[in-house]
Design a protein around this nucleic acid. Sequence first.
DNA 1: GGTTTGTTCAACCGAAAGGTTGAGTAAGGA
DNA 2: TCCTTACTCAACCTTTCGGTTGAACAAACC
Lengths: 118, 118
Amino acid sequence: MEDRLSRVFAALADPIRRDMVARLAVADATVNELAEPYAVTVQAVSKHLKVLEDAGLVSRSRQAQRRPVHLEAEVFDLMTKWIERYRREAEQRYQRLDAVLAEMADEQQTQTLEEDAS
Amino acid sequence: MEDRLSRVFAALADPIRRDMVARLAVADATVNELAEPYAVTVQAVSKHLKVLEDAGLVSRSRQAQRRPVHLEAEVFDLMTKWIERYRREAEQRYQRLDAVLAEMADEQQTQTLEEDAS
DNA sequence: GGTTTGTTCAACCGAAAGGTTGAGTAAGGA
DNA sequence: TCCTTACTCAACCTTTCGGTTGAACAAACC
């Protein structure tokens, strides 16, 4: 799974990682702060952060022994663009189908009216 | 990974599945049609489709022996909403930081001007 | 210099993911 | 009825994932 988009989607497929992203949207946090609410070891959280970092979703600086984690909002654009593109196509197709069905209904009604008239 | 959002993100973390979604955005297709371009067996593609179906991204009907696959565009909203929510928060926070930095720069300049005046 | 705090690295484990082959089912066509 | 087409199920294999424990490193603190 080497490509960027795959890494980003995979990173957000985990509930703990999504929750960390949600919390990081509010404020930067250290590894220990992030680990606190979850029923897993701090090492596990450290691994989760590596996944998020490899996906480009977060960056880490250094502050004494602490490694504050910061959310990188730009990466979200990648996903949004991908999603919106295909959703739009699919919706347009759906609307075309609706149009075709409406046209067929119209024709049907015209036929019925002609029958009534005869 | 029982929750809906996790299943959707996980489903789209695979390049083959993302490509299938891209093609299904253009037109419905059967399992064999979908399998054709990839260097994997049709059974593997069948498994991929099950993943997409469990995530609610596609639905399947029946047409003689064929099982046409159809893209369900609504599920994309779930993801988009999630992404946009946290991106917006993170961006606002970034802009607040910008404002603080700008303010600090202003104060710095004011101080410099005062020093110049004295 | 030794200890505490914050974090990562390494080795391991069980479960799930993504692939295979081979057999089974379901429905049209000869 | 038999054959072919379209697809799924079952069993298996290998790699990755998410977790663990235990040790190591890095920087403050006493």
